[in-house]
Design a protein around this nucleic acid. Structure first.
Lengths: 350, 350
DNA sequence: GCAGATTTTGGGAACGTTACCATTTTCTAT
DNA sequence: ATAGAAAATGGTAACGTTCCCAAAATCTGC
C-alpha cells in the first residue's frame, strides 16, 4: 500500500502559509501560554479555524514527551465493581483533559504483562493498575509512574496506591455479624495466588483472634470472583456444614450473589437458614432477594483518587502515598438476627 | 522544565550501534516481514533484547499513519449493559493487538463531541460510537472510520453499525406479554431526544397496531435509563393507573429494576399486582426479587462484532454493513400469567 | 530621533520511526 | 572467473510538532 499518512489533514504549515507567518509562530499562537502579539494570534486562530486545523497529538507527544494518555489495567471491566472504579477514573481523567486506555486482565498475569507492555510502547504518561500476581519486579521496573489500585499495596512498598480500607471494612462486617449473633462465619475468598485473597483472610483471622475465635475453626472455600464460582463454593459449604442457622462472609459481591443462588437451589432460604454478607457494594445486591447486606467499598472514589495520585506521581511529588478509603456497611435483608438464640455455634478459643 | 523526552529509553539507533548495523536494518529486522539476512536479524534481536529496546509507538504511528488505537464512546461505563459491550470490544481488540481509548458520554451531546475531538486528535484508526443526539453531521464528517453501536443506525444511513435487533426483540417481549394475557402494557422509555427512545416506541406501536391495540391507549412514561428515574416513572404510572393486575414494558433493565423498587414501595407485589418486563438482559436482573423477565440483548457480541466491523471499515471494505443481532427472551418471575382471567383490560381498536 | 532593552518572529534542528533509493554484497549461471 | 541478477544493507528524507537561538520588529527613555 502506498504511503497515506494523514489523509490531507491540515498541518501547522498549512495554517502558517494561510496566516502569512512561520510555523513556529503558529505553534506558539496555538499553545496558549506563549508570547505572541495579540493581533497575530487572532490571525493565526482564524486561519486555523478556517482550514479546520486540529493538532496532531502524535507529533506533539513525540516531541514533548507527553502523550496525555493514561493506562488503566483492571481485572474485568464487566465486573460492576471494577466498571465503577473505571468510571471514576474516566471522570477525573476527563477533568484533566487526558484520555484513558482501558484493559482487562482477567486476573491473568500474562495478559497483565502484555497490557503493561502495550502501555509502555504507547508511551502513556502513567498507569493505574490492579496487579494480579506477585510478579513484583515487573511492575517496579515498569519504567513509568504507576499507582496501584486495590489492597495489594503491602506487596509493593515503593509504589503509591489507593484502595479501600480492608481492615476497617472487614471489621465493619464482622462487627455486624457478631452483633447479630454470628461469631464464626464461613468464608468464601478468592483463589490462591490472588493478592486480595491473602489480605482479606489475614484481616478476618486477625479480627477473629481479637474476639477469641479460633481462625482454624472457620470453613474456608475458594472462588474466582464470579457468580458461578460463588455458587459452587456455597454448594460445597452446604455439604460440609449441616447445622443451621449459619453465616457466610464472602469476599466479593458477585460471589455472594452466587452463594445466594446456591442457598435458594438447596431449598433453603436466606437469611433464615443461611446469612450472607458480601463485600464490594455493587448495585445488583440492592435488588436481590433478599437484599444483599454488604460492606460497600467506595469504588468510584477509588478510581477518582487513583487518577489524582497518578497525576501527583507524574508531577514527581509525594510518590509514596498510600491511601485507604473507608468502607460503609449496607444493611439489607441477607443477615438474620440470631443473637437471641442459644450460642451453640460459638467457637471459643481457650 | 528542561527537555526530557523519553528518559533514556533505548532507541533504534542504540540497537543499531550495538549490533553494528544501520538503523534502517534494525527497523527492517524488527518489523517481521522484510528481507533481512537471518544472521543479522538474530544479531539485531539479540542486541535489542540486551538493551531492553521497545519500539516507540508514537514515532511509529506518526510515520506510518497508523496508531493501533481505537476509540470507544458509550453512554456510561458504569451501566452494566454498556460495560458488557465494552468488554466485548476489549476482547476482540486484544486479539487484534490494538488498544482501546474508552469514554463515557453520559448521554450528553457536548461531551460526546469532546470525546470525538479527542479521538481525532489522538489519530485513532477508527471509533466505535453509540451516538447520543442527532447531530448527524458531526459524526458523518468525523473524518475517520466509524462504526455505530446500538439502534441509531437508521439516522445515519451512510455508516456501518451493529446493534441488537430491536424489532425482533420487542416482538419477542410483546409476544410473551400477550401470551400471558397482557395486551396493553404501560411503557417506560428513554427521554426525548435520545435516539433509542424513538426506535423502541415506534416498534412497540407498530406491533400493537398489528394486534389491533390502539397505541394511543398506552400509558407512556419517561426515564433517564437509571434505576432512580425508573423508580420515579413507575411511581407516576401507579398514580395514574389503578386497575390491577397491570403490566409495564420498560426500555432498559436498570429502569425496570427501579420500577420493581417502586412497586415494592407502593406496597404492591410483582408480579401479582404489576408485571414488569425489562430490556437489556443485565446480570442484576437475575438476582432480583422476583427475577426480572427481560429481553436479553447480546451485549458482548455487539462489542465484538463492532470491532470486527470497524476493522473492515478501516481496511476499506464493505463500509455500509448494518448488523442487527438477535435478542433472546429471559423468563424469570416478574411476569404474571393472567391469561385465564377476564380480558377486561384489553383495549381493542375498531 | 536614536541607542539600548524588550518583544515578537523566523529558521532550523530535534523527537524516533519508516520509506524510498542508491549502494554494496551475495548468489546464479555461464 | 565473471557478467548479471538478486538480495541485503546504508543513507537520507520525511511524518508534524516543539524548542532553542538568532534576527527582526517594537518599545523605552532621553
Amino acid at each position: 500500500m502506498a504511503q497515506k499518512p494523514n489523509i490531507n489533514r491540515p498541518t501547522i504549515v498549512d495554517v502558517a502559509r494561510l496566516a502569512g507567518v512561520s510555523k513556529s509562530t503558529v505553534a506558539r499562537a496555538l499553545s496558549q501560554s506563549s508570547e505572541v502579539k495579540k493581533k497575530t494570534r487572532d490571525r493565526v486562530i482564524k486561519a486555523a479555524d478556517s482550514v479546520g486545523y486540529e493538532r496532531n497529538h502524535l507529533a506533539h507527544s513525540l516531541r514533548s514527551g507527553r502523550t496525555g494518555m493514561l493506562g488503566l489495567v483492571i481485572p474485568d471491566l464487566a465486573n460492576p465493581f471494577w466498571a465503577e472504579v473505571a468510571r471514576g477514573a474516566q471522570d477525573r481523567a476527563m477533568d484533566e483533559g487526558v484520555s484513558l486506555l482501558v484493559f482487562s486482565s482477567d486476573w491473568n498475569a500474562e495478559r497483565e504483562a502484555a497490557h503493561l507492555r502495550a502501555l509502555r510502547q504507547a508511551r502513556v504518561d502513567g498507569a493505574l493498575v490492579n496487579p494480579v500476581g506477585d510478579h513484583i519486579d515487573e511492575l517496579e521496573r515498569f519504567g513509568m509512574p504507576v499507582v496501584l489500585l486495590g489492597s495489594s499495596a503491602p506487596r509493593f512498598p515503593d509504589l503509591p496506591s489507593v484502595g479501600s480500607d480492608i481492615n476497617q471494612g472487614v471489621r465493619l462486617g464482622l462487627d455486624r455479624l457478631v452483633a447479630l449473633g454470628h461469631h464464626a462465619p464461613a468464608l468464601i475468598v478468592g483463589s490462591k495466588g490472588r493478592l486480595a485473597r491473602t489480605r482479606f483472610m489475614r484481616v478476618v483471622f486477625d479480627h477473629c483472634v481479637d474476639r477469641d475465635v479460633d481462625p482454624q475453626s472457620l470453613i474456608v472455600e475458594e472462588g474466582e470472583y464470579t457468580v458461578q464460582s460463588g455458587k459452587k463454593a456455597m454448594a460445597r459449604i452446604l455439604v460440609k456444614k449441616t447445622s443451621e442457622p449459619m453465616s457466610v462472609f464472602v469476599a466479593n459481591d458477585l460471589m455472594a450473589l452466587g452463594a445466594l443462588l446456591a442457598v435458594r437451589e438447596a431449598g433453603l432460604t436466606c437469611p433464615n437458614d443461611v446469612s450472607i454478607l458480601g463485600f464490594d457494594g455493587i448495585q445488583a445486591g440492592i435488588f436481590s432477594d433478599p437484599g444483599l447486606s454488604t460492606v460497600k467499598k467506595p469504588a468510584r472514589k477509588i478510581g477518582e483518587k487513583g487518577i489524582r495520585l497518578l497525576f501527583d506521581a507524574i508531577a514527581g511529588k509525594a510518590s509514596d502515598k498510600r491511601i485507604e478509603l473507608a468502607c460503609e456497611m449496607r444493611n439489607l435483608g441477607s443477615l438474620a438476627d440470631i443473637s437471641g438464640t442459644s450460642p451453640q455455634h460459638l467457637t471459643v478459643v481457650g
